[in-house]
Design a protein around this nucleic acid. Structure first.
Lengths: 222, 222
DNA sequence: TAGCTCTTTACGGTTTCCCGTAAAATGATG
DNA sequence: CATCATTTTACGGGAAACCGTAAAGAGCTA
């Protein structure tokens, strides 16, 4: 079993629970470290690597409260990306309230994570199994993930997100080009914005900008 | 200290954590009961009351997975309302991921809860203190709640929510009256819809329907 | 550079939204 | 029932969104 594990999770109670689960896996207490801030996690990873005793597994949440200003890293996604840059062979397990298969899938693809366990019923067993599976060199995709089987799908690119985001902030569609130019985003014509929105809505079977914003909020695209 | 406590929380790991916290409060193990479904909570409450040994405190989450169909009650809000109907003197503590003061406040007002503890950093201590405070007959409002201090505010009534909800579902503004009539909602004219939306947007300093939908999604109004 | 394709932008007509005004309906009061 | 106040609806003009078409531009190949 793993000899050195780092847990990044800002919720104290959940931290307790992970401890308890790891105890059951007989990972000794002094080989586990718990941090409440992403920045601390990175410090630990660097230090351990420098000392020649790198961590083997990182268990992390996705969202962290930013209750103390001035933190470099404030999300699990950034933490994972940074951790991977420092130590490419590190195994990474996400333990999060997020439970949609589509979201998990994109994390496997984009961040090359090794396991995704949603906080849910029976999540302790789930977590235990996940750690074991990852230890055996395999990926673990939890069975508790909700498969949102929308046949229609659209992959939002940077441009799409920018436009939708501007709309959600109250920028009128006709004024979007102005903001796009300010940000030096390549197609900035109003026609391009209109066409793109039209394509997205058609693909997703969406009838209005309002519904599109609701969709993007639900999917955490914005 | 409390002699009989019921915990309704579908996340196994968090259930563990609450156990640990209650242990520290020296609430004996055999006087605590843990359930994973709202319906089970109600059954327990009724049974205990019938046996003349009613629960004194209910600790519950707000959101529950509906992984098993056919449950009567699926949210913490419903659970609390039902519990209060059965046993008015029951103390109720919400332990939830929700951390906005405005949301907590409305729960105190509408459901007459006794304590609200958000899952956050130091939530174990927070929970402990909350239980003690409630035991002493007082209300506990966690310090960890985020005060969303928007000077502008608008109280969304049933009509507002219906309209915004329809828009978010892709109904064109001009067609909203049709749906309102179908639901026998009182003002159904297009002008009324327009006027109401205009008032809301002015109050909230919002410039477009898109931004309004984003706002409502963020505030969990829809 | 000519020729081709693909992307981006410009333009115009139709629909929808927005907002002010006024008429109609509703309701309370004496 | 008459009067007044409030709510709801109707209407109309200007702004914005929508959508198709076509022109302009960018990139590639020969």
């Amino acid at each position: 079993m793993f000899k050195k594990v780092l847990i990044a999770e800002d919720h104290e109670t959940i931290n307790y629970s992970i401890q308890k689960t790891l105890e059951e896996l007989e990972i000794p207490h002094d080989s586990r470290n718990y941090v409440y801030y992403c920045d601390d996690a990175i410090k630990r990873l660097k230090k351990a690597l420098a000392e020649g005793k790198p961590y083997e597994l990182l268990i992390t949440d996705l969202s962290f409260e930013d209750d103390i200003p001035g933190q470099q890293i404030t999300t699990g996604q950034e933490l994972i990306a940074t951790a991977r840059a420092i130590q490419p062979d590190l195994k990474i397990l996400i333990f999060s309230i997020e439970n949609r298969a589509s979201v998990a899938q994109s994390l496997f693809k984009e961040l090359k994570i090794d396991a995704f366990v949603p906080k849910a019923r029976r999540d302790a067993q789930d977590l235990k199994l996940a750690v074991e599976t990852v230890y055996n060199g395999k990926k673990h995709v939890s069975v508790n993930l909700k498969k949102d089987l929308e046949q229609q799908h659209h992959e939002f690119n940077e441009f799409d997100i920018e436009v939708v985001s501007l709309l959600s902030q109250g920028v009128l569609q006709k004024d979007v080009p102005i903001y796009l130019q300010q940000k030096n985003i390549k197609p900035s014509g109003l026609s391009s914005v209109e066409k793109r929105l039209s394509i997205i809505k058609t693909k997703l079977n969406i009838f209005s900008n309002e519904q599109l914003i609701a969709y993007c909020k639900d999917k955490k695209i914005i």
